[in-house]
Amino acid sequence: MGLQINTATADPKIEVLADRPAVTRGIAEKLLGVLAEAVEQRGAAHVSLTGGGAGIATLEAVAELLRAGSPALDWSKVFIWWGDERLLPEGDAERNVTQARGALLDYLVAEHGLPAENICPMPTSEEAAHPEAGAQIYAQKLETHSPEHGIEGPNGKLMMPQFDVMLLGVGPDGHINSLFPDKDALAVTGQATTGESDAPAELGPPMRVTLTFDAVHTARRVWTAVTGKDKAEAAASALADGADVSAYPAANARGAEETIWHLDEAAAAELPR
């Protein structure tokens, strides 16, 4: 495929912390600050969540900070989105939204005034018969929160909100969201969402809905949470000069204003010292 990194985006910064709890707590602390600032400055905050071990642990860390008395945030002005989702039934334990509700979102609704309607999950298998239908449904949902004239993407305007933060995990194969190596979804441009019907078998259910690279690149900040020695090779390859996006999609995990890779020492083991 020979896809290139979008060099118009922010170059990645690298933060290496001791272990997964240090990574997830560090991201959680920054996330609360960014969301509060966005609400104060623009009247609303939009965040795109991710699944996976580190992604869900980050949400658990947010809940821990709030329970410990972290400064107040007007959660009624915060909107929750996802970078990808498995096309499975409502409430399925493998859905990212199900795990996020257990880790944080149900608590925010019950205790911190997050309106249930501000949680914007991707479609279920009951709502969409196949991934492309799910992608169209989510594109329509994104459009309802878009600025009037959209936001500028690398291949034209996208009708979607501009995320203040997009959280991303990175798979051992170098994927982000459901953008997997050498798949057609990597080359989709000019739209915010697409479907993936053949995710790698070892990663669970094959049918997914995902945001595209164009959508990723409109986010103000893209932050990865990468932990564990099984991610070390992918992290080093994705962050190497001249990385091949088709082989390591995470090389193109870049935000419009800021890109930060948060790694624990195990995941950073193969980075140049």
Rank of each mutant, 00 (worst) to 15 (best):
V23H: 04
E202R: 12
P154D: 12
L168G: 12
P147G: 11
V78F: 04
T124I: 01
E94N: 12
M1F: 14
Q162S: 04
E196W: 00
P272C: 14
A243I: 03
M1A: 15
G255L: 09
D214Y: 12
G204Y: 09
N252H: 01
G228V: 15
A236W: 03
W261H: 07
G2Y: 07
L66I: 15
A235K: 04
E29F: 02
K157P: 04
G33H: 07
G255M: 03
V222Y: 15
A38P: 00
V209I: 15
T218G: 10
D182H: 14
E37N: 04
N118Y: 00
M160C: 11
P272D: 13
V62Q: 04
K157M: 14
V34M: 01
P154V: 07
P147M: 10
R208I: 03
D74P: 07
T218E: 13
V23Q: 07
W81S: 01
V209P: 11
D19G: 02
D19A: 11
T9R: 15
P131V: 15
A38R: 00
A61E: 08
P121R: 04
D244V: 09
V226E: 06
K157T: 11
L104M: 01
V165C: 03
A238S: 15
T24H: 05
S48F: 06
G153L: 13
D264P: 02
E29M: 03
G228S: 15
F163N: 09
A36W: 00
G2E: 11
L87A: 00
V245E: 13
T189Q: 14
R20D: 07
A185C: 04
A116C: 01
L167Q: 02
K229D: 05
A232E: 05
G150T: 06
D198W: 04
L179D: 04
L158M: 00
G150M: 01
A267R: 03
E64I: 14
C120Q: 13
S178L: 10
D214I: 03
M166E: 12
L65V: 11
A247P: 04
N155C: 06
G190P: 00
G26P: 02
H217G: 08
H217Y: 01
T194A: 13
D214F: 08
I137W: 12
E258T: 09
D84Q: 06
P147V: 10
P249T: 11
S246D: 09
Y107E: 05
L168S: 08
V16R: 05
G153H: 08
P115E: 05
G83W: 09
F213C: 08
M122N: 05
D84W: 01
G156A: 10
S178Q: 09
R208G: 05
A18R: 10
D184E: 12
S76V: 05
H112Q: 10
A68T: 12
